[in-house]
Nucleic acid binder design. Structure first.
Lengths: 162, 162
DNA sequence: TCAATTAATATTGTGCACAATATAACGGTG
DNA sequence: CACCGTTATATTGTGCACAATATTAATTGA
């Protein structure tokens, strides 16, 4: 079973392994996130906002807010995905969307109290997921590192030449 | 940077690494598959059909065809995804959808000549992708194995108990 | 100052994913 | 045969993803 990279067998394709594993993990998250009223991409957005709030804990007034473009950079998502997603989260009062007064093009996203409070309920989620998984933590960390490396390589060797 | 599984940091989450890497790989495929007029999930369907055709090479008449339910099992997709996808591929004459005469519930999917011929043009795709990627093949195979293991574990420890 | 350019977000359209439900066909039992 | 539970696929509705385009605001430059 040598993989010279030219096989068209489904089972030989790393791309399919990635595709199927990703959906399986998302499916595992789904019922847990449903308790919080979040979809998986919405959860990722909240993770960024919660992180941001921690980083800005020193500031009292937190005047900045996170731009949609910054969210997009972190999550690798564009506005076609983020705009409606953020509107749904805003409808549920998890966050606010406000035009920046300094630059009217910019929309600043901020957690509401409700959104910030949700963090406590999300705290146990990563643990609960790994819990049901019979895999050594070191192996998961190794896998994560490999995936991050691959992502970095894919993003660095970007566009047209190949 | 210890990961006890309780971090809510985006960068610590294997789930995000999986999510982002999957989309990055899919994005890398997109322009190549566009040459064949296929989306990425459509490509996966074609992979299964091409494989099936190879396996049945001994049969001359190939009366069986692949059931939608079999496709779904292999790709881990349900009819809500597959039915419209297969209709689009049928419109483009890549495959045919026919009710089984023996069991009218079943829809049998078969490659057309055009669909079968596309295999030749797809042959080089895995190679072209890995080519632009500065990663040792062994590392990719190891990553694939890890992902397949994870998928298996996720599917075995299935539903409600946790 | 005002046209041109750039930047940030929004909108539109297509194609997945998936939950929930519907439809139709099979298979067995009385 | 009529009834019933099961199986296979289809349909509907919601929510991503992403390409392409539009909109509005800031910036630059004659």
């Amino acid at each position: 079973m040598v993989d010279n990279g030219d096989s068209l067998s489904l089972d030989d394709q790393i791309c399919f392994a990635l595709y199927a594993a990703n959906r399986a993990v998302t499916a595992r998250y789904r019922p847990i996130l449903e308790e919080l009223g979040l979809t998986y991409p919405q959860y990722l957005v909240m993770l960024v906002l919660w992180q941001e709030q921690c980083d800005n804990a020193a500031d009292i007034s937190n005047p900045e807010g996170l731009r949609i473009s910054d969210l997009g950079r972190r999550l690798r998502l564009d506005t076609g995905t983020l705009t409606p997603l953020l509107k749904r989260l805003a409808e549920r009062e998890m966050l606010t969307r406000e035009r920046s007064s300094r630059d009217e093009r910019v929309v600043e996203v901020r957690l509401t109290k409700k959104g910030a409070a949700l963090r406590a309920r999300a705290q146990g989620i990563p643990g609960r997921l790994l819990c049901g998984l019979d895999v050594q933590p070191e192996r998961l960390i190794a896998l994560r590192t490999e995936l991050q490396d691959m992502l970095r390589i894919l993003e660095e060797t970007g566009g047209s030449s190949g």
